[in-house]
Amino acid sequence: MRTVLDLKTGEQGIVRRIHGRGPLKRRFSDMGITKGTSIKVTKIAPLGDPIQVNLLGYELSVRKEDACEIEIE
């Protein structure tokens, strides 16, 4: 399974699925991370975590432990 974490900084992917259930999944979909959205890793925080992603024209900070639930094509 390829996740957002497999993207290098500056690389882009298309969301295939969010794993898990409940608050995290809901939060992701509310922020626009849904099936078919294109998502780009823009930056990794200076201490290595969290990561910054770009989607729908805005920037989002996501922890690595959460980002691994976002599967991409």
Binding site: L24, P50, E59, L60, S61, R63
Partner: peptide, 11 residues
Amino acid sequence: DPAPFVMELPE
């Protein structure tokens, strides 16, 4: 807070 840390970085 069951809401995870998914935070917007505003302009």
